[in-house]
Design a protein around this nucleic acid. Structure first.
Length: 274
DNA sequence: CGATTCCCCTGGGCGC
DNA sequence: TGCGCCCAGGGGAATC
C-alpha cells in the first residue's frame, strides 16, 4: 500500500533512469485502470524526452514538452525500470519503453493487481483537476499546526478523518494517520474542532517526523520496495498501534483498541491518547 | 459547505 | 487441495 513515503521512494528510484531519456514507444495492455487511459498517452509520448519526474501528493508526473503522464499507484501499483525483455506478468498493464543508453534499453513498467491506480494526461501549462484543491505537502513549511487548527474550527468529524482529508494536507494515509495520532497523544475519534492549537502543533510535528523517517528508511531499502505486498519503508515491527488490536501499548501496556472510522480501521491506545 | 457512505478491484487468509 | 467468504484500502463520486 504505497503511502507518500513509498511514492517518494519510487520517484527517487526511477527518476535517474528516466530524466533526459527519450521514450520510444508505449505499450498499453490493459486500457482500463481506475479510469480509461486517455489516447494522448499512447499518441503523444513516443518520441518525447522525459524532462522531470515530479511527485505531488501520491501522484507522480512524468513531464515532457507535449504534456505529462500523471500516475497514481493506488493500493497495489508498482513502477519498475526493467530490461525490455522482462517477462510480462498478469498485472503488467503499461510499459513505457526508453531509448537505449550505454546500459542498454529499458522500460518503465506499471504493475497494479487491483487496478486502483491510474494513468492520466495533463496538457502543458495546465493542472489536472485531480491535483486542484489539494492541501499542502506535509513536509513543507506550508503545513503546520496552525493550518490544522484554523481549518478544523467548527469541524465535527473525527480528527483522524480530518488529517486524512487531502484538502487539508496530502499524503497522510491510514497507517500514518493512526501512528501520528498516537505519537501526538490524540484520540483519533475526537472531533477535529475540539483539538487545541498546541496539540495540533504537536500533531503536525509528528506527521513530519514520521513521514520523513519513513522516506529515509525507504531510501535504505530501495530494493525491497518493489515487493508489492510488503510495507516498504515501514516495518510492521516498528508500528506502535496500527494492526495491533489487543496487543499491549509499547508505552504503557494497555491493550490497543480498534474502531472503524470512515470505513477504515483505526487503532489507538485508550490510555496514551485523549 | 461538511459529513457520510458507496464503490472500484483482487490477493491473501481463513474455515470447512 | 479446493472453494466460498471476508477483508484490506486510496480516494473520487454520490448522497444526505
Amino acid at each position: 500500500m504505497p503511502e507518500l513515503p513509498e511514492v517518494e521512494t519510487t520517484r527517487r528510484g526511477i527518476a535517474p533512469h528516466l530524466i533526459g531519456r527519450r521514450i520510444t514507444s508505449v505499450v498499453l495492455r490493459r486500457p482500463d485502470l481506475r479510469w480509461p487511459i486517455p489516447p494522448e498517452v499512447g499518441a503523444l509520448l513516443p518520441g518525447q524526452r522525459i524532462e522531470e519526474v515530479e511527485r505531488r501528493a501520491k501522484y507522480l508526473l512524468l513531464h515532457t514538452q507535449v504534456g505529462s503522464a500523471l500516475l497514481h499507484l493506488g493500493m497495489t501499483g508498482v513502477l519498475r525500470v526493467l530490461p525490455p525483455d522482462a517477462p510480462v506478468g498478469k498485472h503488467d498493464h503499461v510499459d513505457i519503453a526508453l531509448e537505449a543508453t550505454t546500459v542498454g534499453a529499458r522500460i518503465l513498467r506499471f504493475t497494479d493487481a487491483r487496478r486502483f491506480g491510474c494513468l492520466l494526461w495533463q496538457p502543458p501549462g495546465t493542472t489536472h483537476e485531480l491535483l486542484e484543491n489539494l492541501g499542502p505537502e506535509p513536509l513543507t513549511d506550508a503545513f503546520d499546526g496552525d493550518l490544522l487548527w484554523h481549518l478544523s474550527r467548527g469541524r465535527t468529524a473525527a480528527v483522524k478523518l480530518f488529517l486524512m482529508d487531502n484538502a487539508v494536507v496530502v499524503g497522510v494515509g491510514n497507517i500514518y494517520a493512526s501512528e501520528a495520532l498516537f505519537a501526538a497523544g490524540i484520540d483519533p475519534r475526537r472531533a477535529a474542532g475540539s483539538v487545541s492549537r498546541a496539540r495540533y502543533a504537536r500533531l503536525a510535528a509528528e506527521v513530519k517526523r514520521i513521514l520523513a523517517w519513513a522516506i529515509e528508511r525507504g531510501g535504505t531499502t530501495l530494493r525491497d520496495f518493489i515487493n508489492p505486498d510488503g510495507m516498504p519503508g515501514y516495518f510492521v515491527r516498528e508500528l506502535q498501534v496500527y494492526g495491533r488490536e489487543g496487543e499491549p501499548c509499547r508505552t504503557c501496556g494497555t491493550a490497543i483498541r480498534q474502531v472503524v472510522l470512515g470505513q477504515r480501521s483505526t487503532f489507538w491506545c485508550p490510555r496514551c491518547q485523549k
